[in-house]
Simulated assay, not measured.
Amino acid sequence: MSQQQDAPSIYATLASTFMQFPATDDPVSSDAEVVVTGVPFDLACSGRSGTRLGPNAIRLASANLAWEGERWPWGFALDEALKVADCGNLGFRYGEPQSLVDNLETHVERLLGAGKRLLNLGGDHFITLPSLRAHARHFGPLALIHVDAHTDTYSGGTRYDHGSMFHHAVQEGLVDTDRSIQVGIRTTYDRDDHPFEVLDAAWVNEHGPAAVVERIRARVGEAPAYLSFDIDGLDPAYAPGTGTPVSGGLTSDCALKLIRGLQGLDPVAMDLVEVSPAYDHAEVTSLTAATLALEYLYVLAANKR
Rank of each mutant, 00 (worst) to 15 (best):
E105D: 09
H146N: 05
L294V: 01
I127R: 05
V39T: 04
Q20R: 15
T285M: 09
T291Y: 08
D176C: 07
R71D: 04
V35P: 00
R137A: 13
L287W: 00
A289P: 05
L294M: 12
Y11D: 12
T242Q: 05
F21M: 12
A136D: 01
T106C: 07
D232H: 11
H207Q: 14
D230Y: 04
L100P: 01
S2F: 10
T151F: 00
G184Q: 02
V220L: 10
F196S: 03
S16V: 10
E214N: 13
A201Q: 03
F21S: 09
R59K: 12
E283N: 15
W67Y: 13
L14W: 09
V108G: 00
S2P: 15
G50I: 01
D235N: 11
A81M: 04
G249L: 02
T106D: 14
F76I: 02
D190L: 12
L272E: 01
P27R: 02
L287N: 04
L132W: 01
M270S: 02
P8A: 11
V34E: 00
S16N: 15
K83P: 05
A202S: 13
P224I: 00
T251C: 09
T285G: 10
V213S: 10
L262V: 08
G208F: 09
E80R: 14
L272A: 06
F126E: 06
Y298F: 12
V35D: 00
S9W: 10
V198K: 08
Q5R: 15
F126I: 03
L112D: 00
L292R: 01
V34N: 02
T242V: 15
A57V: 01
L272G: 08
K116S: 00
S62I: 02
A85E: 08
A61F: 02
E68L: 14
D26S: 14
E109H: 12
P8I: 11
D79A: 12
A301Q: 04
D271R: 06
T153P: 06
Y238A: 11
A289Q: 06
L53H: 15
V35I: 15
V36Q: 02
Y94E: 13
P245C: 09
R137E: 11
V101S: 09
I145H: 05
L112K: 07
Q182E: 14
E33M: 07
P27K: 06
Y11S: 11
L112V: 03
N303V: 02
N89A: 11
L65Q: 06
S252M: 11
S180W: 01
K116A: 00
K116Y: 04
V275Q: 05
T244P: 02
G113V: 07
P97Y: 09
E68Q: 14
G261V: 06
L65A: 08
D230F: 10
I145T: 04
P224Q: 05
L121M: 11
V284K: 13
E295D: 14
P97A: 11
D178T: 14
R110N: 13
K83M: 08
R260Q: 14
Q5H: 14
S30P: 06
P224E: 03
A218M: 10
G140Y: 01
T37E: 04
D230G: 07
A269D: 03
G69R: 13
S247G: 13
Y279F: 15
D102I: 04
L144D: 04
P209H: 15
H107E: 08
T177D: 08
L272T: 08
S9K: 13
L227K: 02
P236E: 03
F18T: 02
A302M: 09
Q182I: 06
P236M: 08
